[in-house]
Amino acid sequence: MQTWNYIEYAAWGLSALFGLYMLVDWFRTDTSYSEDVLTSSREGELEALTEEEHKA
């Protein structure tokens, strides 16, 4: 067994960790917050605020 074989296994392991982290966090987030909150982002928010401040 050469060093590079261990590095290969490490790469598989790290890949699994990163993938799992995202999936678990995704699941936790989706179950902790309502869909209304998660998808509340609106385009043009900054522009609208600037426009209102300008008018005021």
Binding site: Y33, D36, V37, L38, S40, S41, R42, E43, G44, E45, L46, E47, A48, L49, E51
Partner: peptide
């Protein structure tokens, strides 16, 4: 521009 963004 709309308002109501809770998480952006």
């Amino acid at each position: 521009g709309p308002h109501g963004t809770k998480v952006g």
